[in-house]
Design a binder for these strands. Sequence first.
DNA 1: GTCTATAGCATGATAGAC
DNA 2: GTCTATCATGCTATAGAC
Lengths: 199, 199
Amino acid sequence: MTTLEKNTPLEENSRRMELVRAAAKLFRDQGYERTTVRDLGNAVGLQSGSLFYHFRTKEEILVAVMALGISSTTEQLERAIAKAGSTREKLSALFHVHLNSLLGDNQAALEVMLYEWRSISEAAKPGLILLRDRYEALWQAVLDEAAAAGLVKPDTRLLRRTLLGSLHWSVQWYRKDGELSVDKLADRMLDLVLIEQSK
Amino acid sequence: MTTLEKNTPLEENSRRMELVRAAAKLFRDQGYERTTVRDLGNAVGLQSGSLFYHFRTKEEILVAVMALGISSTTEQLERAIAKAGSTREKLSALFHVHLNSLLGDNQAALEVMLYEWRSISEAAKPGLILLRDRYEALWQAVLDEAAAAGLVKPDTRLLRRTLLGSLHWSVQWYRKDGELSVDKLADRMLDLVLIEQSK
DNA sequence: GTCTATAGCATGATAGAC
DNA sequence: GTCTATCATGCTATAGAC
């Protein structure tokens, strides 16, 4: 692998991937700026200088973390929607996939995407915005379908934004060791947005 | 003012306050870690060394920014609730005060509170948590009253958390130069949470 | 592919003059 | 109360050996 090929999109089980996963946890816990390349090296058993064989800059690691977080969540959501039988099930999938990704064991990456945006250079933003838009388009389509079916209120663009805000914020208060499971939380959040059916 | 008195809670029109307001904007735009004491000095026409006459550390400035943001919003909400005539008006005040504070001209401070929490040392957290709890208690009381009146769904603790998440997230997408005013946005967000009355 | 060593620079904070 | 000067440290990234 030459220096010019460092932007290779994805490789499982590689050193690069191992590094990205470790970086996701460190960036989430300490923040990107407070995490040094020495911290990153320690986390995977490398000297700080050796990192720069795998990534050109520290920011390139941050971008890789974010891209991983958003694109893996998008893929999960696409699969869940494809498998859903009804509009109601698709709506439910939005909540379950998002929360399991955000609050699940292996998904510090998505959290980093939400809270370290300011550290992304202008040059790197367009690519990440594309990934984010693809994810939000999935949401929009399902919400539009649900509104047409009378399940949720018709102001779906604002609804999408408020719901995503609600879900994102859960990382600030949800505790895994509490009594509320992630899936139960998803169901209760869904209940809050469903229009009550008058008979 | 001696060194020992640097924790004086509040002073209007002081150099300290001027610095806190400038710091709020810088911390919001660049992040706390990326903002240097030299940046802070420049913003108020001081050399970096001179800052440390007013604050012992850079973190002390961050804490002051957050305390200002949350406590001034709390005071505004207290006044608005006291003035409200009905439960419905109190509910409306939650949205209008929060969004005007968060998205208004002079309130970068509240945004910093939301996004720089990780940079706060353990020693400084309890005081800020106290301020936050006071604010959220106001919300909880109004939501409980609104649920009792049938205006919103009864799961008010989760409702409080999802609503605050929705409102916080608005800083990520709301544009002041757009067609939607802050107060109109508050009304539409309120509409999304109100239970539709069956006749 | 990883190491050691370090260049080159920015950082938060302090000391003492005024 | 602000300035100048600077200390001590930490940072990202590079160079070259292995």
